[in-house]
Structures are given as structure tokens and as C-alpha cells.
């Protein structure tokens, strides 16, 4: 249910505050919504996303769990089957690997297996992707893993306003939603946060963050910022890049990408994760299916290196997509070498 109220004003806040406000408003609105996870209550969240929520809502609705991801993910699914709307925080999505069986086999598939009787209104949220210098087991983007699975919705916002309005949409959604945040964005401020508690964004709608006519840069989460930076640099070199912030990965907003490509005829996809079977692979396939006649160059993927994340500072830098690589890729699809 999408509500687009009038007279709304937009304020500036950090992604961290926006997520907290989004949860607080939904908890206020709906008594069945509760938050559960490691360190979410008394510690106010490992990354302070749930700051103040215990004080506001009490221990019944803001629940510290033991370190038992598989257990509390499954418990959350059961609570959702039982009529509640759990928000399950993973301290980071790396630890959702402990729980992935419950997320996919129980949360995502049960509606189908029950012929539509069941349903699992649950949000799994937390930071996803590389943080900084924490090594392979703590730096991993799971976007394509979850986006692979029917029965799930997968959201990965960039700005604070989107984080809040899409988290609210996720909480209100009757399906299991994977909500992928980014630790490095938590402290960033954006001035696009609606103060209207009824402002909710549609899941499955991308946003054109920068209009351009020469090449389409497709990104999500932290990489949107890199794409925007790259677009600035490209502008200096006479290339006018359009930047699409996907916002939702499943269902993917194919229409917005196709419309953009009809104009630019060129696509570069950018993601932090590994290249093989990534979001970029899907975008390339979709371009073949939906926009083949409009392409003037093969789709190019800018991705993380095809290796587990190294710890060393210099190697980590090499493993992650950098602005330079995006600029180079955009020039390549525009056939503009130096």
C-alpha cells in the first residue's frame, strides 16, 4: 500500500537515524511489529541503529537474543506465521549465513507450499557488504544470493530518505523482505528524509539519481555514491552519464533501466560483490532480453574482485570497485579511450 501524502517536508539526517525513525514509527503504528537481534536492546545496536528503541518500547518489543542466528531467524519466522511482524536484525549479513536455511526454506517458500494460506511478514535487516579492513568473513555483499530466490523481496537503499521510506514499506509488506544496509553509509547525512510518518516508498521502483544521455550507470547502496562521483568526472571529460539507483533488487525495476538505455544505448553495472552470477550478470541478461536492439556496446560490469576479501589495506583497495574503474568502463562502452 503506497501512500503519497501532500505537504510533506524533507529534513536532513543520517542513514542511521533514518532507519531508527523508520522502525520507531512502524512500531508506534502497529503493535505486532517488534525488533529482535544480537545487542539490539541494551547496547542500542552493535552499530547503534536501534538507539533509544528499548527505552521507547520496552523489552517485550525490543529483544536481545543470544548468538544463535539460525535459532532466532527460525523463531522470527514462527512468530510471523503466528501473526506478528518481526524485524530481525543481523549484526551483519555475514552472520545470516548461519540462518539462511530458515530464510529460504521456511520464510521464502512457505506461502507457495501452502497454496497461499500461509505468509511470512518478516524483515531481515542489517549491514551488508564490505566494511573496512575486517577480512573475508566479515566483508561480503549478499545481494545476488537473496535476489536469486523467489518468495523474497530484496531492498538495498542508498540515501537516508530511501532507507527510512523503504524500511517502512518492508515492515508493512506481507512478505519476507531482505533489507540490505551498508555500514559505511550509516554515518552519512542526506537531506531527503520525509518527516511524514505515512511517507512510504514503493518496493520495486528504481530512482534516476542523475540524468544523462551518453551512458547509463546502474548501481545500488554504497556504489550509487561511487557512480555519482564517476559521473562528475565523466562530465568533465564530456560524457554525460545517467545514474540509476536500483533501490530494490527483487523485484528489479526493469522498465526504468530499459527506458534509460533506449536513450543512452550503453550500460555499465556497478556492484561490490563478485562478478560471477552477480546482479550485473542479471542486468546484462535483461538487456539482451529487453533492450538488445538499443545497445550500441556490450554491457560492462564493474564488480569486486573475484576473490575473498583480503585484509591488507592495499589489497582491499584493489578488491573493491573504485571510481576510476567506473570511469574507465563508461569510457570503454562509449568507445572513448585516452
Amino acid at each position: 500500500m503506497i501512500v503519497e501524502p501532500k505537504n510533506q517536508s524533507f529534513v536532513s539526517m543520517t542513514v542511521r537515524e533514518a532507519l531508527r525513525d523508520g522502525m520507531a514509527e512502524e512500531m508506534q503504528r502497529d503493535k505486532t511489529v517488534f525488533l529482535m537481534g544480537e545487542e539490539v536492546a541494551e547496547y542500542n545496536g552493535a552499530y547503534k541503529i536501534s538507539q533509544g528503541l528499548l527505552d521507547m518500547f520496552g523489552a517485550k518489543r525490543v529483544v536481545d537474543t543470544p548468538i544463535t542466528e539460525h535459532g532466532f531467524a527460525g523463531l522470527g519466522v514462527g512468530a510471523a506465521f503466528g501473526g506478528l511482524r518481526p524485524i530481525v536484525e543481523f549484526m551483519t549479513f555475514n552472520f545470516s549465513m548461519q540462518a539462511i536455511d530458515q530464510i529460504i526454506n521456511s520464510a521464502a517458500k512457505t506461502l507457495y507450499m501452502s497454496g497461499g494460506q500461509m505468509g511470512c511478514p518478516i524483515v531481515f535487516r542489517g549491514p551488508n557488504g564490505a566494511a573496512s579492513r575486517v577480512g573475508a568473513q566479515h566483508s561480503h555483499c549478499y545481494a545476488s544470493w537473496y535476489a536469486h530466490c523467489p518468495g523474497l523481496k530484496v531492498i538495498s537503499p542508498y540515501s537516508a530518505g530511501d532507507a527510512k521510506a523503504l524500511l517502512k514499506a518492508a515492515i508493512r509488506d506481507p512478505n519476507p523482505v531482505i533489507f540490505l544496509e551498508n555500514e559505511l553509509l550509516y554515518g552519512h547525512s542526506f537531506d531527503d528524509v520525509s518527516s511524514d510518518p505515512e511517507h512510504v516508498l514503493p518496493i520495486g521502483k528504481a530512482l534516476i539519481r542523475r540524468e544523462g544521455k551518453d551512458v547509463t550507470l546502474v548501481a545500488f547502496s554504497l556504489m550509487v555514491g561511487k557512480a555519482l562521483e564517476a559521473a562528475e568526472q565523466l562530465a568533465e571529460q564530456g560524457i554525460d552519464a545517467e545514474v540509476i539507483d536500483l533501490r530494490t533488487l527483487r523485484p528489479l525495476d526493469i522498465e526504468t533501466i530499459v527506458q534509460s538505455v533506449k536513450k543512452t544505448n550503453r550500460v555499465v553495472s556497478i556492484e561490490e560483490s563478485w562478478p560471477f552470477a552477480g546482479i550485473g550478470s542479471e542486468i546484462a541478461a535483461i538487456m539482451m532480453e529487453h533492450a538488445f536492439d538499443y545497445l550500441d556496446a556490450p554491457v560492462v560490469r564493474v564488480t569486486g574482485a573475484d576473490v575473498p576479501m583480503p585484509y591488507a589495506a592495499n589489497l582491499e583497495h584493489l578488491a573493491l570497485p573504485q571510481v576510476d574503474a567506473i570511469v574507465e568502463a563508461a569510457k570503454a562502452v562509449c568507445y572513448r579511450g585516452d
Binding site: 548468538i67 555475514n94 552472520f95 549465513m97 548461519q98 579492513r133 575486517v134 577480512g135 573475508a136 568473513q137 566479515h138 583480503p310 585484509y311 591488507a312 589489497l315
Partner: peptide, 24 residues
């Protein structure tokens, strides 16, 4: 340099890590 504080191993000393996932 590829593992960092949490991920180190020594076959020679029969030390098998160094694991970042609690309980794994």
C-alpha cells in the same frame, strides 16, 4: 596480510585458526 587479526593459521604448529564466525 590477507587474513588479519581474526584469520591466522599454522599447519606447522597445528593451529587451525582464527575464525570470525561465532561458533563455526
Amino acid at each position: 596480510g590477507k587474513g588479519g587479526s581474526m584469520h591466522m593459521f599454522s599447519r606447522e604448529k597445528n593451529f587451525f585458526g582464527g575464525h570470525g564466525i561465532v561458533g563455526a
